[in-house]
Structure formats: C-alpha cells, structure tokens
Design a protein around this nucleic acid. Structure first.
Lengths: 194, 194
DNA sequence: TTCGATATATATCGGATTGATATAGTCGTT
DNA sequence: AACGACTATATCAATCCGATATATATCGAA
C-alpha cells in the first residue's frame, strides 16, 4: 500500500491538512499499524490533487503559515473503495531495533540489556495509551477516523484498536514476567565464564 | 539500523551467504522483528567487504551459481559490538495493510472482511510456527543465530522469541474471541441502513 | 524576561530500501 | 515435459524515510 492510498484512507474520515494526516499515523487512529512521514505525505497529496482524487481549499491564517485543507472528491472516494476491493494486502511487518539488539544480550553489559528492556516497555506503554479510540477522540477539534458521521465508533476501528491493545498487553505482560529471569540467566553465565 | 549493521549481526552467528542471511530475516531467527531484502543485502555485503568488516571465500559449485561465503573479520566483530553500545534504537514500527483495510470494514462487503480476518490469522499462525527457535534449528545444515558455539540456546534469542510468541498468541486469541462479534455488528448495521 | 522546547504548517531532497527482474541450473510434481 | 519451487547472485527504477529549511506562536523554566 503506497502513501497515496493511505492518504485517501485518512481522508475518508473527513477533511484534513497534510499535517493532520501525519498525526493520524503518528499519534492517532492508524498509529499502531501504519506509518507515513511528512516527506511522503506532501508529495502524495500533490499527486492526488493532479489526478483529481482530492481537492484543497487554502486558508490564509494570521501569523501562521497557510493551511491547505484537503478533501476527497467523489472520484477519490470511488478509487479508494475500488482499491480496497482489489488490493492484495502486503505481508505484515514488524521492525524493532531493540529486539534485534536484545538478541545479542550476551555480548553486552547487563545494565544495557536492562535499559533496553525498560525502554521497550516504556515505549509500548505509551503506545498502549494512544491506541484507545476513546482517548484519542477526547479533544473535540481533533480529527479522527474512529467515528462515523453520527459520532459512533466505527466497528472496524474498534476491532483493530482492540487487537492492538491486546498485542501491547501481551507484550507488557511478557516483559513483567520474564525480564528478571533473563537478567539472572545472563548474570549466571557471566560468573560461569570468569 | 541500516542493513549493513543487520548483516554484521547476522554474521555474528557464523559464516553465511547473502542468500542465507536473507533467510534469517525471512524465515529464521530474526524473521518476526526485522526485515531486509536481497536488494539491500548484496550491496551491503559488498560495502562491508570494501570496508574490511567482512571477508568472503568463493566456492565454485558444479552446475550451480558460485557461492560467496561471508565471514566477520575481527574488526567487523568489534565494529558491531561498538554499534550495539552506541546506537540509539529507532522506534518500533508495525505495518499491516490488512489492519488498515479492516478499519474500513463498514465500506466493504462482509465476505471480504471475513476473508481479510482469516488471512490475517493464517499469516500469524504461520509466523507463530517459524518463531520457535527449537523448530527453526531442526535441519542441522541450516544457519541459525539462536545457538552459541556450544549449541546452547542463547538467552537473548529465547527472550525475544518468547516475546514474539506471546504477541502472536494474543493476536490469535483476540481474533478467535472477537471475529464473530465484528461480523454480527456489521450485519446488524447493514440491515438497519436498508 | 528571555531562552529553549514544543506545536502548527508546508516544502524539498539526498540517501536508503523495496520489489521486480534477469540469469541459470536442480529437483520434485502433476 | 512442463511448471513451479528452491538455490544463488546481481542490478535498478520507484518509492519512502529522515533530516533540514522556513516561519510563527505559545508555554514553562531559569
């Protein structure tokens, strides 16, 4: 799925600026299973405008850079829905530098191992809070794809958010239960060697 | 973490060809938390050779393309360990087209939603089998980073594999428990609308 | 009060990475 | 005997990330 398609999807929830779209991927509805950087979002929106799939209105703001509020055209909407039906989804991919590094726990000082595990837990804890669709919707002005026109939580979003939550919880539970065991094992090995 | 560093890490477990390194990321020890494609591995190995961090022996094979068996140099080993100590690990990122698509479950036919969920479950089931370090080590000829020189499972690998396993299990459990609920909810909404 | 950090907002670009393709032979299956 | 799957390396266009630039506002801390 390229960034153009992701942008169309983000705009299915209503109008938004490029900056707001990035926030959906960084903090918001999509944050725990998709990513897109500003460096790909802005060119994507330009291309989509050229192709007639989105339009934008430029809002001049006092003492702030101009704001371009993007919106799906009816063709953009149709294109996105067609893409949903036709696309074979790519393989899921999870990428974690920390887990890669922890693989080599034996080769590093125990304090570093512990610090890496703690950082891993902290990051996932943070993510866990962001996932909750109730939470991310709190500020009324913020855009969110989690609710439909009637303000009801969309079932697809609920399901996906719940899944993310379950994954995080399992991750944090595993760390709570196994961190000390790993550290002990590493200590035992070090004293054995010397 | 760039592919060069990942390759050094892969070679910490012993010598390997580029093809075998890719397998570690596709099927093997690293498969559930890192990825690297052949298109990035081969150039990385070339660069590492130029920089003196790895060396290779070319094995001419009968009726097969030549094999380049790569190995860490002592400087390569030192460089990798230094990198472990110095690198600030990048944020974890999980990317799933299927979950993104499921977010829009309301906009697609229920059969597609169900098919996507089933495919998601099937893929994670497969992954779950690959993670088990006991399994991936079965064929004696296959390279694996999960064991040390003495053939013992390395504690870091165990920990990371266990974490992966816990995540998969939580994912699959959530789907078992919530799939039908989502489908029912979607059906109810469709009949309400019409 | 002034400094630094954070937030809003768009734009650009070098460098890294993916995914597809080319080449080439073996092996198992239908 | 034809087809796909596996072993094995190599290349490259298209894409994407991450950093940087530009400009201003706000808010807390020193």
């Amino acid at each position: 799925m390229d960034v153009r398609t992701l942008c169309l999807g983000a705009l299915m929830g209503g109008e938004a600026t490029g900056y707001e779209i990035r926030k959906m991927f960084e903090d918001g509805t999509f944050s725990h299973f998709q990513i897109a950087s500003l460096g790909s979002i802005y060119p994507a929106l330009t291309k989509l405008t050229q192709d007639g799939l989105v339009t934008f209105v430029e809002h001049e703001q006092e003492n702030r850079p101009d704001k371009k509020i993007y919106q799906l055209t009816s063709e953009g909407r149709r294109t996105f829905l067609r893409t949903l039906l036709q696309t074979r989804p790519a393989e899921d991919r999870y990428r974690s530098d920390i887990l890669f590094m922890l693989t080599f726990a034996e080769e590093m000082p125990i304090e570093l191992t512990e610090a890496l595990i703690d950082e891993f837990a902290a990051r996932h804890e943070l993510m866990s809070q962001q996932i909750d669709p109730e939470n991310t919707d709190k500020p009324a002005h913020q855009k969110s794809n989690a609710r439909d026109e009637n303000g009801e939580l969309r079932p697809g979003c609920c399901f996906v958010a719940g899944l993310g939550q379950a994954m995080r919880n399992a991750t944090l539970k595993f760390i709570r239960e196994n961190k000390q065991g790993l550290l002990d094992e590493l200590k035992a090995r070090k004293t054995n060697k010397s």
